[in-house]
Each structure stands twice: as structure tokens, then as C-alpha cells.
């Protein structure tokens, strides 16, 4: 149980996908302008991370590893995740239109995102069991959400700030992102000592 909590917390804070691993920067800079679109994107990421792990972990363990096909990991994962998200979208559209509407365009958008592929591959590399892998995916998704929501707050403050002309737009966004990332570095080494 303690191990699961450590995995969850370290995925959210220490190994935060955006701010420490620098994966998924594209949606982080692209969709963090408004709080509601940031939330929608994050929910879609959590959702896809969970189902992607639920499918890719068994494929790796029961199909690729026994047959010595570990080197096909990347291409098969991309293939399966893309097909899966399409399938989920069709199912959602038919049976849960409300959820389909709120996840909206974000669902197909993050299909081929590196954060999704990253979490599935890292789950295998870390040697997690199925439950640990799922918890890690959930934590990574929550960490993504935390970073997105925090940063959308920062960006809405930037809108009203008096910024020098040469820094307006993307430059000041990147500066703000780096400072946010720096603040997350402070979490390093905390979790291990928490349960020591």
C-alpha cells in the first residue's frame, strides 16, 4: 500500500510529466490559455492514460515479452493506443454524448501525444505490476492536470500584466513555464523521506 502511495505522489509531484520530464509540452503551451479548456484537456489525458496502460501492459507482458518481440514496443503501442482512442470515441459518442461533448476535440488530439506513449513505456521500464502501472498512470494524469490548471492561472494573470513588447506572447509564456518547472524541482527527494 505504501508503495502505491509513493508511486502516486511521486508521479504527481516529483516526476511531473510536464514540469520535470518535459513530456506533453505541446498541449501544455497550446491549451493552457483558459481554465475550462485546460481542465477538459487534462481530463481527456487522465482518461486516455488509464485506458492506454490497461491495454498496453498486458500486450507487453503476455504477447511481446514471451515471444522476444520487445523491440516492437514503440510501434505496437502507438498503433494500439491510436485505434483504442478511436474506438472509445465512437463508443462515447453513441452511449455517453455528454462526456463525448465535454472531452470534445481533446480526445483525438492527445492520441499521439508523447506524454501518453511516455507513461505506457515508462510503466514497462520501471517493472511495475499491473496495479502499480495503473496507479502510476493515474498519478501522471493528475500531475498533468495540476500543471495545466496552475499554469492556466499564471497565464490569465499574464494577460493583464504590463509586459515589455519584445516579451509579449510566447516568450513570456516560456519564461513563466520555466519558473513553474523550477518550483516543482523543490519537491525532489521529499516523498522518499516522507515514509522513511
Amino acid at each position: 500500500m505504501t508503495k502505491l502511495i509513493i508511486i502516486l505522489l511521486s508521479a504527481v509531484f516529483i516526476n511531473n510529466y510536464i514540469l520535470s520530464r518535459f513530456l506533453g509540452i505541446c498541449p501544455f503551451l497550446g491549451v493552457s490559455k483558459k481554465l475550462d479548456s485546460a481542465t477538459g484537456m487534462s481530463l481527456a489525458v487522465i482518461f486516455v492514460m488509464l485506458i492506454a496502460t490497461a491495454v498496453t501492459w498486458p500486450i507487453q507482458m503476455f504477447l511481446l515479452n514471451p515471444n522476444g518481440l520487445g523491440y516492437l514496443q514503440t510501434i505496437i503501442f502507438i498503433l494500439v493506443i491510436a485505434a483504442l482512442v478511436q474506438l472509445v470515441e465512437i463508443v462515447l459518442k453513441r452511449y455517453i454524448p455528454a462526456l463525448h461533448k465535454s472531452l470534445g476535440v481533446y480526445l483525438p488530439l492527445i492520441t499521439t501525444n508523447c506524454a501518453i506513449l511516455g507513461v505506457t513505456i515508462l510503466n514497462i521500464d520501471e517493472g511495475y505490476t499491473f496495479v502499480e502501472a495503473m496507479v502510476n498512470s493515474l498519478g501522471s494524469g493528475l500531475g498533468f492536470m495540476l500543471a495545466m490548471i496552475m499554469f492556466s492561472g499564471v497565464r490569465s494573470k499574464l494577460e493583464g500584466a504590463d509586459i515589455p513588447k519584445s516579451f509579449k506572447g510566447l516568450p513570456i509564456t516560456l519564461v513563466a513555464a520555466s519558473v513553474t518547472s523550477l518550483s516543482f524541482m523543490g519537491f525532489g527527494g521529499i516523498i522518499e523521506n516522507l515514509f522513511a
Binding site: 504477447l63 518481440l69 516492437l72 505496437i76 498503433l79 494500439v80 483504442l84
Partner: peptide
């Protein structure tokens, strides 16, 4: 294996 998995995914979709 890649072709088979791809075909299965396509058929399901």
C-alpha cells in the same frame, strides 16, 4: 505481429 494487430484494430474500428 504488427500486421495482425493492425488488421484486428482496423476490423474492430
Amino acid at each position: 505481429p504488427v500486421v495482425i494487430i493492425g488488421l484486428i484494430c482496423a476490423a474492430v474500428l
